[in-house]
């Protein structure tokens, strides 16, 4: 997550001391991603090392303020105009991995597995929706960031349910065509090194 850039963007609005920066981050993200003060200072140390912020002398209350440098300001501007590019390598999704393995095993009730997962994901979705309901309709300016964050979590959970529905339908069709047989251990000796075939890399590019 872009903690580093988020901090810089906040500091671009004015110098902050550590606890103040944490409070600002929480306020702007609905306290969704709690940070401990150690993470705050280690991030600030790296920003300082990279010349993006400068530390001031402690004030009367012993607060050490961090102020953004011109380089830091440029980095914020660059961050705001650049899309977030997610890794093109398949992320290690625990659920996708579980389902992929489970369909190769004999005697596993995949329909039950999918349904149990669907229920768990729906419960999560209900809980998120309830939190959203309790948070009002998003009209209040203070809550808007939080509403956006919770919407993001809701859409992710929904996507998971849709993927489960899709997987279930696909499985039913595969079974009907006799394509969903368990996969016994392959006794041919596995070769060292990267497999020469067996799936297209997720970014669609041919491997050298």
């Amino acid at each position: 997550m872009s903690i580093r850039q988020s901090f810089l963007a906040i500091l671009d609005q004015g110098a902050c001391y550590g606890y103040q920066l944490r409070a600002e981050f929480d306020r702007r993200t609905g306290s969704t991603w709690p940070l401990n003060i150690g993470q705050i200072y280690s991030t600030l140390d790296r920003l300082e090392r990279d010349g993006l912020v400068e530390r001031t002398e402690a004030d009367d209350s012993d607060h050490v303020y961090y102020a953004i440098t011109p380089t830091g300001h440029d980095e914020v501007a660059q961050w705001l105009v650049s899309p977030v590019v997610r890794s093109t390598a398949a992320p290690r999704d625990e659920l996708a991995m579980k389902l992929a393995i489970a369909i190769t095993l004999p005697g596993v009730d995949i329909t039950a597995l999918i349904q149990a997962q669907r229920q768990a994901t729906l419960r999560n979705l209900q809980e998120l929706t309830r939190a959203k309901r309790a948070g009002g309709d998003g009209g209040a300016g203070d809550d808007l960031s939080w509403q956006l964050v919770i919407d993001s979590l809701i859409f992710q959970a929904e996507a998971e349910v849709r993927w489960l529905d899709h997987s279930e339908t696909r499985l039913v069709r595969a079974k009907a065509s006799g394509l969903a047989e368990p996969m016994p251990i392959d006794e041919t000796r596995a070769r060292r090194g990267r497999p020469a075939r067996g799936g297209v890399p997720i970014d669609g590019k041919a491997r050298a």
């Binding site: 349904q115 669907r118 994901t121 729906l122 979705l125 209900q126 998120l128 929706t129 309901r133 809701i154 859409f155 959970a157 929904e158 349910v161 849709r162």
Partner: peptide, 14 residues
């Protein structure tokens, strides 16, 4: 058929 809408309910039956 939409999970996001069903989530507004107290109970979801399939």
């Amino acid at each position: 058929h939409d999970a996001r809408h069903a989530a507004w309910a107290d109970r979801i039956v399939f």
